[in-house]
């Protein structure tokens, strides 16, 4: 059995939270994520940027009542990679 490496992009707890929430929701706004994860704006923004750069999540910017509203969704690639990450975690715990 070859040792599979855990994806370093998901090592951080905030990133884990962002990905987990997006896996089970269609679109979530910045505010939704902030409330769910209980983190600061700066912290959340930097981790979102990181995931976006890897194309694990996609961004939609629109205006609601002239106020900017940014929402996020997990991409096909992100969904695949995150599923893989969970599988490897499970394998490592079982000691395979």
């Amino acid at each position: 059995m070859n040792v599979q490496e855990l994806n370093k992009d998901f090592e951080n707890r905030t990133r884990l939270g962002i990905m987990s929430s997006l896996m089970v929701n269609d679109w979530l706004s910045f505010k939704d994520l902030k409330e769910l994860l209980n983190v600061t704006d700066g912290n959340l923004a930097s981790h979102i940027k990181g995931l976006e750069r890897k194309e694990y999540i996609e961004v939609k910017k629109e205006f609601i009542d002239r106020k900017p509203n940014t929402t996020y969704r997990v991409t096909q690639l992100g969904r695949m990679e995150f599923k893989k990450h969970i599988e490897i975690l499970e394998k490592l715990i079982k000691g395979e």
């Binding site: 707890r13 884990l16 939270g17 987990s20 929430s21 896996m23 769910l36 994860l37 499970e90 715990i93």
Partner: peptide, 8 residues
């Protein structure tokens, strides 16, 4: 894993 589950 626990964090993922509880977050989902």
């Amino acid at each position: 894993l626990k964090a993922i589950r509880s977050m989902m």
